[in-house]
Amino acid sequence: MDELSASSPFVISGSVADDTESIVYNDVTFHITKITINKLYRGMDSVSEGDTITLLQTDILEDPLVEERKELILFLKKYQGPVIDNAYRIVGLKQGHFTLNSDGKVYPISVNLAKSSHAKDRESSLVGVEAETASGIPLEELVEIIDSTSYNPPQNR
Rank of each mutant, 00 (worst) to 15 (best):
L4F: 01
S5W: 06
F10V: 10
G14I: 00
D18Y: 09
E21Q: 14
D27T: 09
T29M: 09
T29K: 15
F30T: 02
H31I: 00
T33K: 04
L40V: 04
Y41K: 01
R42P: 00
V47W: 11
E49T: 13
G50T: 04
I53K: 02
L55R: 01
L55M: 10
L56P: 09
L56C: 01
T58M: 14
E62D: 12
D63C: 06
E68P: 09
R69V: 09
L76S: 00
K77Q: 11
Y79Q: 08
P82F: 08
I84F: 04
N86V: 04
N86K: 07
I90H: 02
L93P: 03
H97Y: 05
F98P: 10
S102P: 08
K105V: 07
K105E: 05
V106P: 00
V111H: 00
N112G: 06
A114H: 05
S116Y: 09
S117M: 11
S117A: 13
A119G: 09
D121K: 04
E123Y: 12
S124T: 13
G128C: 04
E130C: 02
E130S: 08
A131M: 03
E132T: 09
A134F: 01
S135C: 06
I137N: 06
L139Y: 05
E140D: 13
E141Y: 09
I146C: 01
S148M: 08
S148E: 13
S148F: 04
T149Q: 01
Y151A: 07
P153L: 03
